[in-house]
C-alpha cells in the first residue's frame, strides 16, 4: 500500500477544507483528483506531504509524513507553476539540480529537454517549463509523485510527453487536474473531491450524472470515447 488515509480532515481556521477522507492507493497506481476550486485538492496533496498537519490517520509508504520527514526523500511534488518565481535568472540545468545532483539523460530525452539545459527557465514556453518541473521531480526517482495541475496552460504535445513519462516512471502518482482529458487513458482510478470524498474508482464508475451534480453543483455532459471510457465534456470543449 502506497498511501492510506482514514478519517482525514483539515481546516483553515474555521473553514473546513477536507472532511473525513478515507481511501487506499496501491503501489504504482495513477490517480486523478478532480473537483471544483476550493474542493481541497491541493490541501490533500499537502496533507500527504505532511506540510499541513491534518487530523485523522495518514500513511505514506508505511510512514506518517507528519512525524517522519524522511519520507519526503521518496516523494516528489510538482507545485502549480503559478507558485514559482519564474522571472529569476536561473538556467534549466540549475532548476533540474535543485532536487538531484545527477542528471538523468533518459528523462531529458523523453521530455525533449537535452538542448534546453543552458537556456533560462523564464525563456521557455509554459509547456517546456512544466516539462522541466516534471523532469526535476522524476530525477529524484520518487516512489510517490504528486502533481498539482501540471496541464494548466500546457500545449497538447507537452501534455502527451508528460503523460508518457508519468506512465513510464512506475511511481504511485496523484495528479490534480481540472480537465481530466489529457491524462484520462493513463489513470487507473479517479477521485472526485469536494471537501468530502464524493466518489473514488474507475472513470466509468465515477463519472456519473449524480456524482458530477454533487461535486460541481451542475449538470456536466458525459461522453463515451472510442475506447469506451466515460469522461466529462467541459464547457469550452463543445465547439
Amino acid at each position: 500500500m502506497a498511501i492510506e488515509a482514514k478519517d482525514l480532515s483539515y481546516s483553515y481556521g474555521k473553514t473546513i477544507a477536507l472532511e473525513n477522507l478515507s481511501f487506499k492507493i496501491d503501489d504504482g497506481e495513477i490517480i486523478a483528483i478532480l473537483g471544483p476550486n476550493g474542493a481541497g485538492k491541493t490541501t490533500l496533496l499537502k496533507c500527504i506531504l505532511g506540510l499541513l498537519r491534518a487530523n485523522g490517520e495518514i500513511s505514506v509508504l508505511g510512514r506518517d509524513p507528519r512525524k517522519d520527514k524522511k519520507v519526503l526523500n521518496m516523494i516528489s511534488y510538482v507545485p502549480q507553476r503559478s507558485s514559482l518565481s519564474i522571472d529569476l535568472p536561473i538556467k534549466v540545468l540549475d532548476v533540474l539540480k535543485m532536487t538531484c545532483k545527477e542528471i538523468d539523460s533518459e528523462i531529458l530525452r523523453h521530455l525533449e529537454l537535452e538542448n534546453k539545459l543552458d537556456l533560462l527557465f523564464r525563456e521557455l514556453s509554459g509547456g517546456f517549463q512544466q516539462r522541466v518541473l516534471i523532469a526535476r521531480a522524476l530525477m529524484k526517482r520518487p516512489k510517490v509523485l504528486l502533481l498539482d495541475e501540471p496541464f494548466n496552460g500546457v500545449d497538447v504535445l507537452s501534455q502527451k510527453r508528460i503523460v508518457e513519462v508519468l506512465e513510464r516512471s512506475g511511481a504511485t502518482t496523484l495528479v490534480v487536474v481540472h480537465n481530466i482529458n489529457p491524462v484520462l487513458h493513463a489513470v487507473h482510478r479517479v477521485m472526485l473531491l469536494n471537501k468530502k470524498l464524493v466518489a473514488f474508482g474507475k472513470a466509468n464508475e465515477v463519472f456519473r450524472r449524480e456524482n458530477m451534480v454533487k461535486v460541481y453543483g451542475a449538470e456536466i455532459p458525459l461522453v463515451v470515447c472510442e475506447e469506451g471510457v466515460v469522461h466529462p465534456l467541459y464547457g469550452d470543449q463543445h465547439g
Binding site: L49, L51, K69, L72, N73, I75, S76, Y77, V78, P79, S83, L84, S85, L88, I90, D94, V95, M98, T99, L133, L146
Partner: peptide, 18 residues
C-alpha cells in the same frame, strides 16, 4: 546558497523537499 535559490524560485517545492 543552494537552499536560498531553491526557496526563492520554488518555495512550495523546497518545502516539499524537506
Amino acid at each position: 546558497y543552494d537552499k536560498l535559490i531553491f526557496f526563492l524560485f520554488d518555495p512550495e517545492g523546497a518545502e516539499a523537499s524537506g
